[in-house]
Deep mutational scan, measured.
Amino acid sequence: RLTVMSLQESGLKVNQPASFAIRLNGAKGKIDAKVHSPSGAVEECHVSELEPDKYAVRFIPHENGVHTIDVKFNGSHVVGSPFKVRVGEP
């Protein structure tokens, strides 16, 4: 089962990169992540390998409000996905 680490749920800033990590815990497959902005825009997140069992997911929010992040592994949502994060002040 995958572990999502260091996902900041609030206090993110517009046009500043945000990232979190995913540990695969021995699982093999493909991570896919997309961020949905409050206006409905959908953007791919950048996924990069940090070490053999750990990946970083990076995105840049372009507007204030609550964004939804879909994180999928081999086509299925990971536990807790979709995640909600707040950009800007509430």
Rank of each mutant, 00 (worst) to 15 (best):
L2A: 06
L2F: 06
L2G: 04
T3S: 15
T3K: 15
T3P: 02
M5Q: 01
M5R: 02
M5L: 15
L7Q: 03
L7M: 09
Q8R: 07
Q8L: 10
S10N: 06
G11E: 08
G11N: 11
K13E: 14
K13S: 14
K13P: 04
N15M: 04
Q16M: 05
Q16S: 08
P17V: 10
A18N: 02
A18D: 00
S19Y: 01
S19I: 04
S19Q: 09
S19D: 05
S19R: 15
F20M: 02
F20A: 00
F20I: 03
A21D: 08
A21V: 09
I22L: 05
I22V: 05
L24E: 00
L24W: 02
L24C: 10
N25F: 08
N25W: 02
N25A: 07
G26S: 06
G26Y: 01
A27W: 02
K28T: 13
K28C: 08
K28H: 06
K30V: 12
K30N: 05
K30Q: 13
I31H: 01
D32P: 00
A33H: 01
A33D: 00
A33M: 11
A33P: 07
A33L: 14
K34G: 11
V35D: 04
V35K: 10
H36G: 15
H36M: 08
H36W: 11
H36T: 03
S37H: 03
P38Q: 00
P38M: 00
G40A: 14
A41N: 15
A41D: 10
A41R: 14
A41K: 12
V42Q: 15
V42I: 08
V42C: 12
V42T: 13
V42M: 15
V42H: 04
E43D: 03
E43P: 01
E43N: 13
E43C: 01
E44I: 01
C45S: 07
C45W: 02
C45T: 05
C45R: 03
H46P: 15
H46N: 13
S48L: 09
S48R: 11
E49I: 09
L50V: 13
E51C: 13
P52A: 11
P52N: 12
D53C: 07
K54G: 03
K54H: 04
K54Y: 11
K54L: 07
K54D: 05
K54C: 05
Y55A: 12
Y55S: 10
V57R: 00
V57Q: 01
R58M: 05
R58G: 09
R58E: 08
R58T: 06
I60D: 09
I60T: 10
P61Y: 03
E63Q: 11
N64E: 14
N64C: 09
N64A: 12
G65A: 06
G65P: 00
G65V: 00
V66I: 13
V66E: 14
V66Q: 11
H67V: 10
H67W: 11
H67I: 09
H67S: 12
I69W: 09
I69Q: 00
D70L: 09
V71H: 00
K72A: 11
K72E: 10
K72M: 09
F73K: 02
F73E: 02
N74R: 06
N74W: 05
S76W: 07
S76F: 12
H77T: 13
V78L: 09
V78Q: 06
V79C: 09
G80T: 03
S81A: 04
S81R: 01
P82V: 03
P82R: 01
P82Q: 03
F83E: 05
F83R: 04
V85L: 13
V85K: 13
V85I: 14
R86Q: 14
V87W: 00
V87F: 02
G88H: 05
G88V: 02
E89W: 07
E89V: 04
P90S: 06
P90G: 07
P90H: 12
P90L: 06
